[in-house]
């Protein structure tokens, strides 16, 4: 029951945070020079027409007034309209968000098994052959620019071998898996090493702790100690890092989305910033924020389950 209360409380606390996020975004966008209507109407667009449209869209109103209008609509569940497309921001997000969410979840799902496997393999015999090989490959994966690797993957696995599509999202679940495989793989390459290194360090830390050594000397099975004590305790700091990485993945998805022409949120956001499509940036940031907060909540809940010190 207390867990449920905790969740409710956290969700309640999310409201002021979202408000804060919206204020920061609004201020940032308002401070950004550049006229969305000029960018929209094109180089040769008539100055009078631009002024007319600006007035119609209320872009010349005082910033504070614009924000309150926005807030008023937001409270009523209206994210506003895109300046570029004259379509509801909610519609645009509804189209692009599932793509990125799919990509991030797909990446995470692909990432977890190798992370656990490689970390345990590494930590079992520190400085052993496996550890060294994993470290070297990990370092390589970490240091290669994603956009470069992604391009090479697209050229090799996509154009050359024809194994995977190099663009798009597809229509069905299996097509999504197929289309987003290379993007997810390209992202994995740098996520896996980060998590492996942290989990490995945590595992080694934990194994050297007194209670583990004591347990081992008392004749408890190595495997059992590892499974019941070492591993759960080591996962905690990595889990925290994991939440941060998911946030990074959401925002950083723009790189692979660009290389693989995936119509996701990263693409939408960057294009909207470049086009000064204020309300899309606003809405997308709020959705990102909400997602990340839910991930954080999930991670925190998971932490209480794993770490006896927090529940105790």
């Amino acid at each position: 029951m207390s867990t449920l209360k905790y969740i409710c409380w956290r969700l309640l606390m999310a409201l002021p945070v979202l408000l804060g996020v919206s204020v920061v975004t609004f201020v940032l966008m308002a401070a950004t020079p550049g006229d969305p209507i000029r960018l929209l109407a094109g180089a040769r667009a008539d100055a009078d027409m631009i002024a007319l449209v600006r007035e119609r869209y209320g872009l010349d109103e005082p910033i504070l007034k614009q924000y309150f209008i926005y807030l008023k609509n937001l409270v009523q569940g209206d994210l506003g309209n895109s300046l570029r497309y004259r379509q509801p921001v909610a519609d645009l997000i509804a189209r692009h968000y599932p793509v990125t969410l799919f990509l991030v979840i797909y990446t995470v799902v692909l990432t977890l098994p190798p992370v656990v496997f490689l970390s345990v393999l590494s930590a079992r015999k520190p400085n052993g052959v496996a550890d060294q090989v994993i470290r070297v490959i990990g370092v390589l994966g970490l240091a290669v620019p994603v956009f470069w690797l992604a391009l090479l993957f697209a050229r090799f696995f996509g154009a050359q071998l024809g194994w995977f599509p190099v663009s798009g999202y597809g229509e069905t679940f299996s097509e999504h898996m197929w289309h987003l495989f290379l993007p997810a793989l390209s992202t994995m390459i740098w996520v896996v090493p980060i998590l492996v290194r942290n989990l490995r360090a945590a595992l080694l830390d934990e194994m050297n702790r007194d209670y583990v050594q004591a347990g081992l000397s008392k004749g408890l099975g190595r495997k059992q100690v590892f499974r019941t004590h070492v591993f759960p305790n080591s996962v905690l700091p990595t889990l925290n890092l994991f939440a941060v990485i998911v946030a990074y993945l959401l925002g950083g998805s723009v790189i692979v989305e660009t290389v693989y022409a995936v119509p996701g949120m990263g693409n939408l956001m960057v294009d909207s910033i470049l086009a000064r499509d204020y309300f899309v940036v606003q809405g997308a940031t709020l959705v990102f924020a909400l997602t990340t907060m839910l991930v954080m909540l999930a991670v925190d809940l998971l932490s209480t389950v794993i770490d006896p010190r927090i529940t105790a």
Partner: peptide, 22 residues
């Protein structure tokens, strides 16, 4: 034909259905 629905917080649920990609 596979239908997959995502629950989108703060927005409507989206249903992506298989289209003809001919």
């Amino acid at each position: 034909m596979l239908k997959l629905s995502y629950i989108l917080p703060g927005a409507a649920a989206v249903v992506l259905s298989a289209g003809v990609a001919c």
